[in-house]
Amino acid sequence: MRKIEPSRNNQGSIQLRFSVNSKRYGFNPVPGGRFDNKRDLNTAQAIATTIQNDILAKNFDPTLDRYRLAPKPRLANADTQHQSPKSLLSLWDYWVASLDLPVATQEHHYKAIRQQIIKANPDLMDTTWLTQSNLGASTFNQRLGYLKRCYRWAVPIKLVTSNPYDELKNRKAYASPIKPFTSREIKVIIQGFEEFAMHYAPFVKFLLATGVRTSEAIGLRWRHIDFDQGFVTIQESLSRDWAGNGYQRVRKETKTGSSRQLEMSEELRLLLWSLRPSKTDQDSLVFTTVKGKPIDDGNFRERYWVKILTKVGVDYRRPYTTRHTTASHAINQGTPVTGVAYLLGHKDTRMVMQTYAHLVNRPKLPDIPIG
């Protein structure tokens, strides 16, 4: 497949031209962008890469809607100062444009907040649309943090006179205790999938055996498995497309941007070998739906995970608990904290210690003569 590269049209703007299944496509990925502007060109290249990855993953959107950006907001030059925005939406678009974010990043939290702003349509200095919203504490705190950063950027360049969000306090969030699956629960969950949803049993086994993020397992391709060396390489994910729905996914790097090699146990190697097609397309997905589509984590949870846990009598925990399960079992079996951090794809041990400190070097009660 020919690499998709941005080109310059006669007016100096950017154009993407490519073919999919003999059908030709062409569009301007950065409305208002210029080919001679490095930031615009980098944005266009990121969109081109997203398209190419979607084509390889058989997840291409022929409408191109997933790949289009809103017209780029233009600020006045420094001599005349910026045009003052009249609404929060205008200010938000100015700020996001200034960040030079990857397309996939824009499609996640930034777009979710933008959609909430559009729905509420608040004035520039109004905060009640957020404080009176029915958001959970963690989501509220996250969005408040983004808005504070937006206004802290806007005040020095005189787009606004003050930051009303600095006066708001975070909501108190109560973290639910982590309850990994026990060895008995792991056994009955696997038995349940083998009996009631056999197609997804290997997917569940892989999650439990490796502790990878769900999006990393969904995005695993055959090129990432080296049977000769005995490694699975985790270096990218197929994450939910926050601008789309259903089976639409976005291929991108891992959450921390790191790559890791997981040494396969003999059981895991045999499992993956049993799934290996006779004619392997290195870019095809290891785990798919029954119809060969990328797995949608929400659909999988509702249609299979919830029902099977109920059938086998295991208290419900979300599929992400498989990751906690791998980590906790590794710690209990003596894996050093640094090793657990590597297995989970963390850059350091901070997250492991914050989450699993209660398992590390857990002391026994002293031997007190009470009998």
Rank of each mutant, 00 (worst) to 15 (best):
K158S: 14
P31G: 02
M198D: 13
V340K: 08
A97K: 06
R251A: 13
S278L: 07
T63A: 00
E263D: 07
K148I: 14
Q282L: 14
Y200T: 06
A48C: 10
G12M: 05
L16N: 01
D65A: 07
L262C: 01
R24Y: 07
S98C: 05
F300M: 11
P31W: 02
H358Y: 09
R362W: 04
K38C: 02
M125L: 14
D226E: 02
K58A: 05
T233S: 14
S328Y: 06
V340Y: 06
S265D: 08
T325S: 00
A44L: 05
T127M: 03
T326S: 11
P363I: 09
S7M: 13
T325I: 00
K205L: 03
T80E: 14
R152E: 13
F27H: 05
Y356L: 08
K119L: 02
Q52T: 10
K364R: 13
K72M: 07
I117V: 15
G192Q: 01
W242T: 12
L344G: 06
I4E: 04
H324Q: 03
T256R: 09
Q132V: 00
A330V: 03
T349Q: 06
A76V: 09
Y94Q: 12
R249W: 04
R276M: 07
E194V: 01
L207R: 04
I47N: 01
R251T: 12
P6F: 09
A327C: 12
D315K: 15
K3A: 14
D100L: 05
R260K: 10
L147D: 01
P363Y: 12
G257V: 06
R323M: 04
T49S: 12
Q45R: 15
S98M: 04
M1D: 12
Q333G: 07
W92G: 01
E266S: 09
N245Q: 13
I118V: 15
Y146V: 10
I368K: 08
E107S: 12
L207K: 00
M1N: 11
V103T: 04
G211E: 07
L359E: 09
A78D: 12
F203G: 00
S278F: 04
L272K: 05
P336T: 02
E236H: 15
A70F: 05
A70P: 07
